[in-house]
Structure formats: structure tokens, C-alpha cells
Design a protein around this nucleic acid. Structure first.
Lengths: 247, 247
DNA sequence: GTCCGACATTAACATAGGTAAGGTCGCCGC
DNA sequence: GCGGCGACCTTACCTATGTTAATGTCGGAC
């Protein structure tokens, strides 16, 4: 059991034993499973829960009337969908599973209870939601300013670092279940060009991507290509890095 | 005095007289003014306040090492920068004035006080911040999937509708202070292409843009070109529209 | 073992949009 | 009145990326 949410929140703050137990309890109740490509919630529905991704990858996406699809965000293990969504009357986009996923539904009541009894968790959850917003902003920069190669490199850096924070990467490798079509829908490019771009990264020995596994032999080199600055992930607790193996 | 924040929040919920007085008081204390192009807060600084834009236009932006600049969001009158930012140790982007602006700084204490004594306002502010997130997501779709003409049309629809919600548009016109360079930095295109695209919209009688004034003779037609669906702005209170002239 | 669908790859060609360069106009400081 | 500057507009040319379509590979269903 990896408890990716706890792993991630501890990048921001120290949690007490009681805090951790609370989070484990929350994650254990109301678990739903979805197959790959299934929708977790669909545009137009009323959001009733905060979804927490426990295992697997999911994404937010939006489809235009004429069928073009844009992936707006990825949810990796330990990611929360939207604090406070219940305020909205209907979803303006959908959330779908990319791989098979296990999702915990957090009710408004459970959330409020946590907010009142666990200020450390509350703080940490706000931190996580501010980081999610920062990621969305960075995607705007990515799509607006970077060319295809930089854009792809940037996405790979981000996903790798986020997986690492959740304890889902081992030294320089991680699982990578995205198809080239999905990469295209994320980066606003055709699958043909996704393929060309990946070839180019492979040819420069910046990545190894095979059998749904991504290896980044030299992360700094890939970051340089991407003009990647990790500050937007706000991962440094009081300026220093956590020992990856603590606890 | 237009009180754009109150105008906008009333699109979501009814506010009591006491709520409104509270908001007026908050907006009146700690007002700072900035000239066009001046930074309100710069990347790397520690955020200490929530900024509320009272008058004028501002933007979030980010600059890559090599100088490319992306505008990430616009702040129009009545817009709040980031609820809860104080949690973060440093800004990962800058906020700058586009026109001369008047900004109210809301301290953490003032914010907490409001959260405790005015649940209606609290709800409304969370709504406003969820809408801001939805706008950011829509920009991702815009940059990823729409071509130059659609993208420009989409941005113009969005800005016009947001200005209208804040009481800053009169029937089919509004002030429009953005230069073509700024439009380019927003939409990820060169100024030359911004110009071509605006010409095309003018030639189709979809917009009149002259002397910093934008007129949209037929909003529905422009929305059609843009594949614009206003649902992401979540502007309908209990399913019906507010009378624009209430209060 | 073979058929099929999902995914990856490649090539040939088409185009949206970028780059470079230059021009006009109105405004501001002096 | 003049020089400079910023916004805007225009043209000619070039390139990154899209489109179409053919082919390859692999794993699962039967």
C-alpha cells in the first residue's frame, strides 16, 4: 500500500499520526473502480463528491461540438479532483479513466469534518489545490509558447516529477500508460507529429519510452530542452527536499 | 461607483445588505494604484495579500528564460487574484497592470473575518475561484484545439461576457485596451497573425474594434465561429438569468 | 494458428501561421 | 516644429506542423 496522497502532502508539511490515520480512513471508504476509458463523471452532471485517485491514471477532458478533444489535466495516484466542487451546479467538463483506476469519493460531510478537526490536513489540501491551479497555468504557457519538442519534453518532466512525489517512480523510470493519441490530445498536436517528436527525443537519448515505461536517463538535460522550471510545483518544504524514503 | 465585485457575485447568489456593506468596506481599505505596465507582484515574491481589481485591467503572465512571454489570465474589474495564496511561499508568475489599475489588498486577517461572519460571501468567493479555474481550463482547450480565428473569437466572447457580468459593458460594446502584441502573447500567435485574424473578423462583420472599443454586433454569430459554450462561466443563478439592472 | 483491433511508424504532400522588413499615423517631450 | 516611439498594418517568403494514407507489429479471442 503506497498511500500516494500522504506521500505527496508530506512534501508540503509534516502530518501527525492522527492526520495520517484520518487520511487513510477517508481513502478507504466509498471506493469505486473504473475500467480504462470509462467516465468517472461526465460534463453536465452535478458534482456530489470530491474524487481522490488512489490507483491508476485519469484525466479531465473536454470535447468540442465537432469532436475535437482536449485533455486538460492528468490525475495521478494521490491527486484530488476539485476541492469545493459541490458549489457548482454542473460539471463543465468530464473526468475519465485512462488506465483502470480506484477512486475514493469524499462527501461534503467528510470533507467538512476533516476541515474542522485537522487544520494541518486542511492547509495541505489547499496547498495541493493551489499547485493544481499552478499546473493548469503552466499548461497554458506550454501550449502558447513552446514548440512541439519543448512541449513534449515539458510534459514528460512534469509527469515524472509528480509521479516521483507520489512515490510512483523508481530512480529514473516510471510507468507511462499514455498512447500517442492521448499525448496528441494533451499537447494540441497530431498523432503523426507526436510520433516524430518522440523519435527526436529518443534519438537525442533524452528518453527511453517502450512497453508503457518511461525512462529519463538525464532529467536535467530533458529539463533544459523543455525550458522546464520546477518552481510551479511548489515541492520544497521550507526550502529543502524531503528524504524520499522517510517513514 | 460600479462595485463590479458585488455585481458579479450577485450572478451567483443573493447577498444581504450586511454582506454588501462588508464587501464595500473590504474594497475600500488598502487601495493601491499602478500605472499601465507596472507589476503588481512579481515572480519570486512572497504573496501576502489577496488582490482585488477595482478598476482597470491586469493580467497574470509568465516569461520563459529566452524572453517569450505568455499571458495566462486577465483580471477585469471585480476579479480576485487567488483565494488562499498566502499558503504558497513564493509566486511562480507575475501579475501586471495592463491599463492603470486600482487594486484592493485583502489581508489574511480580513479574509478570515469575512469567512467566519459571512457565509454567503464565503460561498460566493469560492464560486468565483472555481469559475476562475474553469476559465483557465477553457484557455487550455482554446490553445490546444482551436485555430487562430476560433481562438480569437473565443477570447473576445469570453472577455465581453465577463465584462458584462461586472457591469462594464453597454449593450454590445465594451472598452478593449489590449494591444495586438498582448493579444498575441495571450493566444500564442505572432502579432502579424493577430492582425490578419482581426482583419478577417472585421471583414465578416463579426466585430468592430477601433479606438480601444470593441463592438460585437451579433454575439451569437461570434460564438458560433468560436465554438463558444458559455457553460464554463457558470453565470446562471438557479437556472435563470438576473435582471441586469437590479439593485 | 489466424483473424482482428489498437497502436506505432513512415512517407508525400498541403497549409496555417511564423519571420523579417518596412511603412503610416498619432502622440509626447523638448 | 522636430525627433522619437509605440501601435498598427502590410507584403513576401519560409517552416513547423497537419493531413492522408499505407504499412508494420503485437496481443487477445476464438
Amino acid at each position: 500500500m503506497r498511500r500516494p496522497l500522504i506521500r505527496k502532502l508530506e512534501k508540503f508539511t509534516r502530518l501527525s499520526q492522527a492526520d495520517k490515520e484520518m487520511l487513510v480512513r477517508i481513502a478507504a471508504q466509498r471506493v469505486r473502480r473504473f475500467a480504462a476509458r470509462e467516465d468517472i463523471i461526465h460534463e453536465g452532471e452535478k458534482p456530489e463528491f470530491i474524487n481522490l485517485i488512489n490507483e491508476g491514471w485519469a484525466c479531465r477532458y473536454k470535447t468540442l461540438e465537432d469532436g475535437r478533444r482536449q485533455i486538460i489535466a492528468f490525475f495521478l495516484p494521490g491527486d484530488l479532483c476539485d476541492l469545493n466542487v459541490f458549489i457548482l451546479k454542473e460539471m463543465d467538463h468530464s473526468i475519465g479513466a485512462i488506465t483502470p483506476v480506484a477512486v475514493s469519493e469524499i462527501s461534503r460531510a467528510a470533507f467538512d469534518e476533516m476541515m474542522i478537526g485537522h487544520p494541518r490536513i486542511t492547509q495541505a489540501l489547499w496547498w495541493e489545490s493551489l499547485v493544481a491551479a499552478a499546473i493548469q497555468r503552466e499548461w497554458t504557457v506550454n501550449l502558447g509558447q513552446r514548440d512541439a519538442l519543448e512541449r513534449m519534453a515539458h510534459l514528460l518532466c512534469e509527469l515524472f516529477i509528480r509521479l516521483e512525489a507520489a512515490g510512483c517512480a523508481s530512480d529514473s523510470s516510471c510507468e507511462f500508460p499514455l498512447t500517442q493519441t492521448e499525448l496528441g490530445e494533451t499537447l494540441g498536436m497530431s498523432t503523426v507529429h507526436v510520433n516524430r517528436t518522440l523519435q527526436e527525443l529518443r534519438a537525442s537519448n533524452l528518453i527511453v519510452l517502450k512497453d508503457r515505461t518511461l525512462t529519463i536517463p538525464n532529467l536535467q538535460a530533458l529539463q533544459d530542452v523543455a525550458l522546464f522550471n520546477p518552481n510551479y510545483l511548489h515541492l520544497d518544504r521550507e526550502g529543502r527536499h524531503l528524504d524520499a524514503n522517510e517513514e
